[in-house]
Design a protein around this nucleic acid. Structure first.
Lengths: 229, 229
DNA sequence: GCGTGATTGGAGCGACGATCCAAAGCTTTG
DNA sequence: CAAAGCTTTGGATCGTCGCTCCAATCACGC
């Protein structure tokens, strides 16, 4: 025991190499498991069994890491769904793919609305524009139309993220949480808030994904209508 | 000088009474002047010449304060613009009013996407629903249609907030900032990003407010088209 | 085997949101 | 007018956060 470690001994160096990718994946894991605010540098050092310095050597700062995690999740979606099938179907599948990705990783929704110039979203915008072009939308109408679609998608993304945060904060399961929201809406004054009051009664039959896609169809119909006459 | 204050003397009590409203107004002033991250408890105590305890006596926590500030700004908009004129004009003026408010107070956009169940937004949803009803949209189609409009508005709100943050962070004036963005887009590979490349060349002729209203019209046209058959 | 540069671990810093409590006013009693 | 009790206030203090900094460690070329 003569060679016993003194109390100020430093932890041994890690065996597997650290890399930006490993860090990003660990960040995604934490974000998926515990939400955005759980992604602290300290949590990362614990999970990766390393120190602050090692992480900051590969990553500029927390925002850089959040951005990289967002690109990591969104990146594949557009590539997988953007160019297949007829333009209209391609548009719907890009939108649906984004919805599903954001539904599975709600923090992505918040991050997309915070930094909408991420490369991932750039690809989305490009894919939407190309498919609108293929739909014979006049060239000068493409930017506004693509903007409307992307902004709508971003709005839904933000809503989803907010709902997921509220659900996590409430510590209820999804069912009782929705029941609570419905009850609160139903209690609103039916005279002052008729639409919300009614929505509270019909929340059971509500499917976020279907409503999202209905909105996409609505906007596509509007694009068609505006350019027809 | 015998009664000179000892060094541990407490500052005199403020003369004008503190209140939730005074605090909210101070918060709005800070947010407008320096952005969301500048609203710290410390900054508030300095501006109001008071301490932490006084503020926390009137306000639950920072989120409560941000929410109250948001309601304070958004509250009037719906009341001022919701019920006047024909339904279609009323819808456009609500949307435009929201856009202008968010444009003047970009942090509101971020806050709306973070907490979309704020009472202020509830009024928006209600006003939109009522005007859609007045436009003879079938009752069962109202929720999806209103959702599309509100989500679109929220998406634009988030974008505006993000742009304002980026503009403030860059410390350029609006003109050169836009020129920089345009230049970066124009440098994108025209083969891989044809739409963004082109957008970079035409950013000069771009008006956010007009594009926003064009999106509203697009969605309204879609609502009309879908319900026509 | 010996430097040299890339990589790593962790102590420490300043700022933050939030809590807590005693001081200071205000209002109600007798 | 005075004492008691409730409301409001100021600021010390706590724990946590993102981030900086530097010494320790390793991989590798010579």
């Amino acid at each position: 025991m003569a060679a016993m470690a003194s109390k100020s001994q430093r932890a041994p160096r890690r065996t597997e190499a650290l890399s930006r990718d490993v860090i990003v994946q660990a960040a995604v894991a934490i974000l998926d498991a515990e939400g955005e605010e759980a992604l602290t540098l300290r949590a990362l050092t614990v999970r990766l069994a390393t120190g602050y310095g090692a992480i900051y050597h590969h990553v500029a700062d927390r925002d850089d890491l959040l951005g990289a995690a967002t690109d990591h999740v969104i990146g594949r979606v557009v590539a997988d769904t953007g160019g297949v099938g007829k333009p209209r179907e391609a548009l719907r599948s890009v939108a649906a793919g984004l919805f599903d990705a954001i539904d599975a990783h709600p923090w992505v929704g918040a991050q997309l609305t915070r930094e909408p110039w991420r490369p991932a979203l750039l690809d989305v915008y490009e894919s939407v524009s190309a498919n609108l072009h293929a739909l014979d939308v006049p060239e000068r109408a493409v930017p506004d139309s693509a903007g409307a679609l992307v902004n709508y998608i971003l709005g839904v993304a933000g809503q989803n993220a907010a709902n997921a945060r509220a659900l996590a904060a409430s510590k209820m399961d999804r069912e009782t949480f929705l029941a609570n929201v419905a009850a609160r809406w139903a209690q609103l004054d039916p005279l002052r808030y008729p639409a919300m009051h009614k929505a509270g009664q019909h929340l059971r039959e509500h499917d976020d994904r279907e409503q999202f896609l209905a909105g996409i169809d609505l906007i596509l119909a509007g694009i068609a209508a505006v350019n027809r006459g």
